[in-house]
């Protein structure tokens, strides 16, 4: 087993092989532990000449003492971490991020799994969703209850689910009264908005439209398309 483990740099031997500048840079990065530090903040902190700092960083990387990790907050910025630490979720963004980018495909599949679990107008609890995701084996890593809650809450924002409290009767018979549940919204029967179905409702120019102005209902291009029979 011990052979499989990543070889950890021996701090004693490291100390000897580092130049004075490299040592300053290395200590600054290492002190941040799993949070790491961005290049900009690092340079401000160690107060070294730009050129020297960059050179030291490069050599530390070559020696496998520090590494670059993607920061999901600001992808363009270089973020360093001492090689012995794994980056915190505050840097990687957690389960929803791969290489600093939002993993939309993965999220999409999980969302679909959750929705499949509640057919039209049926209700489910958070625990139900957790179980359903686990059983589906869509995710290779185990997702926490909080992460599933984030998923389900985003489905509420998508207007796919509705947050309701159990009344303890009917479809809620098996759920304790007052517990928060999620009800699937049946979109098939819903009437879409009235305002959104006419040109003015979606018009980007409505604020400058006047009866006799340059943009006017008499000459409106959106109306022309709408009434083009």
């Amino acid at each position: 087993m011990s052979q499989l483990k990543r070889k950890r740099p021996d701090s004693n031997s490291v100390a000897d092989s580092l130049t004075e500048h490299e040592r300053v840079v290395y200590d600054a990065i290492r002190s941040k532990q799993e949070m790491g530090i961005s290049q900009r903040d690092l340079k401000r902190e160690i107060n070294l000449l730009d050129k020297l700092a960059s050179k030291s960083l490069k050599s530390l990387q070559d020696k496998n003492l520090v590494r670059l990790v993607p920061n999901f907050q600001s992808k363009g910025m270089k973020h360093y971490i001492a090689a012995e630490f794994n980056p915190s979720t505050e840097i990687t963004g957690g389960a929803w991020y791969t290489d600093g980018s939002l993993d939309s495909d993965f999220i999409g599949v999980l969302k679909a799994t959750c929705l499949k679990f509640v057919p039209n107008l049926k209700v489910a609890t958070l625990e139900g969703f957790v179980e359903a995701v686990k059983k589906s084996r869509v995710s290779q890593v185990e997702l926490s209850k909080k992460q599933i809650e984030e998923l389900v809450e985003s489905l509420v924002c998508d207007n796919e689910l509705m947050k309701v409290k159990s009344t303890g009767i009917g479809e809620f018979a098996s759920i304790p009264v007052g517990k928060v549940c999620y009800k699937r919204i049946d979109k098939g029967n819903r009437v879409s908005g009235t305002m959104a179905s006419i040109p003015c409702g979606v018009c980007p120019q409505i604020s400058i439209c006047t009866p006799d102005g340059i943009v006017s209902p008499k000459t409106c291009v959106y109306y022309n398309t709408w009434l083009d029979f």
Binding site: G201, I206, P217, K218
Partner: peptide, 18 residues
């Protein structure tokens, strides 16, 4: 939104008259 709706209603009516 209500003001925009009144605006839209006025526009529909003006366009119809036109």
């Amino acid at each position: 939104v209500l003001d925009e709706m009144f605006h839209a209603a006025l526009n529909l009516s003006l366009r119809l008259a036109h």
